[in-house]
C-alpha cells in the first residue's frame, strides 16, 4: 500500500470520526495548522472540549478473525493530558468496522506502566487482533473501549 494511499485512508477515517461525533450532537472542527491533533470536539452548551487523535488501519483477515496495526508517535504520549482522546478506527472489507475510543491517560498508563506496544523508531506500535468480538492489543484487552462513547453522550438539540 503506497504512502499516498495511506494519506487517503487517514483522511477518510478522520472525516468518518467527525461524522460520528456530529451524529451524537457534538460540534467538530479541524485545526487549520496540523500540529498533531486531528479533530477538535466541543459540547457547545457547556464548553466541554476534547482534542481527538484518529488512528485508522486496514484490517488483515486471519484464519480466526482479523488483525490491525496502529502506529502512535511517542511524542504524543510523553505528557499526561486529560483533554486528549484516541480513536482507533478499523477498515475491513471496504467498510468501516470497529471503532475504539480511549482517553489519552489510559493509553499513557498502559504504555508507561503496563509497557504495552513495541517501540519502532519514534512510534509505539500496537498490534491488535480481533476475534469473536473481542479486541486484544499487545496482549491487553481493548474490548471495553469498543464503541466507548461514554464521555461523549448523545446531545439532543
Amino acid at each position: 500500500m503506497s504512502k499516498k494511499f495511506n494519506l487517503f485512508v487517514g483522511k477518510a477515517g478522520q472525516l468518518y470520526v467527525m461524522s460520528e461525533f456530529l451524529m451524537r450532537g457534538w460540534n467538530v472542527a479541524m485545526p487549520e495548522v496540523d500540529t498533531g491533533d486531528d479533530i477538535f470536539v466541543v459540547e457547545d452548551e457547556n464548553d466541554t472540549f476534547f482534542r481527538i487523535q484518529v488512528k485508522t488501519a486496514q484490517a488483515i483477515d486471519r484464519q480466526n478473525g482479523y488483525s490491525v496495526q496502529f502506529n502512535i508517535p511517542l511524542y504524543q504520549l510523553e505528557e499526561y493530558n486529560t483533554a486528549i482522546y484516541y480513536v482507533f478506527l478499523i477498515r475491513r472489507k471496504n467498510q468501516w468496522s470497529d471503532i475504539i475510543l480511549m482517553p489519552q491517560l489510559k493509553l499513557y498508563d498502559m504504555i508507561h506502566i503496563d509497557k504495552i506496544g513495541a517501540l519502532s523508531g519514534n512510534n509505539i506500535v500496537l498490534y491488535c487482533s480481533i476475534q469473536n468480538n473481542k479486541i486484544t492489543c499487545s496482549k491487553t484487552d481493548f474490548t471495553p473501549y469498543l464503541n466507548n462513547f461514554n464521555d461523549f453522550p448523545i446531545i439532543e438539540h
Binding site: Y80, K106, D109
Partner: peptide
C-alpha cells in the same frame, strides 16, 4: 498523581489505575 505544566496553569490527576 501526575502533573503537567500548561501555558496558564498546572494539571493534576491520578493515574487511571489509582
Amino acid at each position: 498523581i501526575y502533573y503537567s505544566f500548561k501555558g496558564n496553569g498546572i494539571l493534576f490527576g491520578p493515574t487511571s489505575y489509582d
